[in-house]
């Protein structure tokens, strides 16, 4: 079997006396969509923050692509293809939709910080950015200032920016939250399309999405992984039903 693209071992994080990440261990395989579910406040976002370098864990190890990344800054991890989206959308509101994605394309292009040539008229960057915008259904909105997008459109823009970084592992923090039905369907099929090519760690409350996409599901409750199995098995796990899904709900 191949090595995992991400290997989290014994990760710990405390806020004062509260243990938000309690000896969490999980693997994401290179061709896998690994879902993380759990009630609000379970520590899902905090876990992603630690994997991306946004937060420093109190203990444990993080190995990505065969490399210990625990001490690398966030931007280095992003450059290695460890890419995330945010639960609370994070875009550059005053730039256009196209410029937002072009910034992502630019980041992995040759000479990303060129001081002289006009970036906004860089055809190569813009053309590539448009391809990603097309994939998330935002191509027609490319010249709109990003802050004028609807909530769902902003979420889609974030996905486009993430894809433009050519991720090896994509960490998605509730990407469907606040999306309309059509937008959710579009994102589902988009993620389905990349399944197998990009490894994903998917935090999501939409159970239909989780059960249709995920190869494995880890259940996080109070900072602890209480189960990790295929969607079908997790659905039947009595502890999971009690802690999270709620009997009769599924």
């Amino acid at each position: 079997m191949a090595d995992p693209i991400l290997s989290v071992r014994n990760l710990q994080k405390h806020y004062g006396a509260i243990c938000v990440t309690n000896h969490v261990s999980l693997d994401v395989m290179p061709d896998e969509i690994h879902a993380v579910i759990g009630p609000n406040g379970a520590g899902k976002t905090t876990l992603i923050h630690q994997i991306t370098g946004h937060l420093k864990p109190d203990g444990g190890s993080l190995v990505y692509d065969g490399q210990n990344i625990a001490n690398l800054p966030m931007q280095r991890r992003a450059r290695m293809g460890l890419v995330r989206t945010f639960q609370i959308t994070s875009i550059v509101g005053s730039l256009t939709v196209l410029d937002n994605v072009a910034l992502a394309v630019q980041s992995i292009a040759h000479n990303p910080l060129d001081l002289w040539a006009n970036a906004y008229q860089d055809k190569a960057l813009n053309d590539q950015a448009l391809v990603y915008l097309d994939q998330v259904g935002l191509a027609e909105r490319h010249s709109v200032e990003a802050r004028h997008l609807s909530h769902g459109e902003k979420r889609a823009l974030e996905i486009a920016m993430a894809l433009a970084l050519k991720p090896k592992l994509l960490l998605l923090d509730e990407p469907m939250a606040g999306m309309g039905h059509d937008e959710t369907q579009r994102l589902l099929s988009l993620l389905q399309r990349f399944k197998g090519q990009i490894a994903m760690l998917l935090v999501e409350h939409d159970m239909d999405a989780v059960f249709s996409l995920a190869d494995r599901v880890s259940v996080l409750v109070d900072g602890e992984v209480i189960a990790c199995a295929t969607p079908a098995l997790v659905r039947q796990d009595p502890r999971v039903r009690a802690a999270y899904l709620g009997d009769g709900d599924v």
Binding site: M74, Q75, V83, I91, V92, L95, L103, S107, L165
Partner: peptide
């Protein structure tokens, strides 16, 4: 300019 608006976003995009 992007970092003025949203520093975390630019860092997440891989910029120092």
């Amino acid at each position: 300019l992007g970092a003025r608006d949203n520093e975390i976003r630019m860092t997440a995009l891989g910029y120092d």
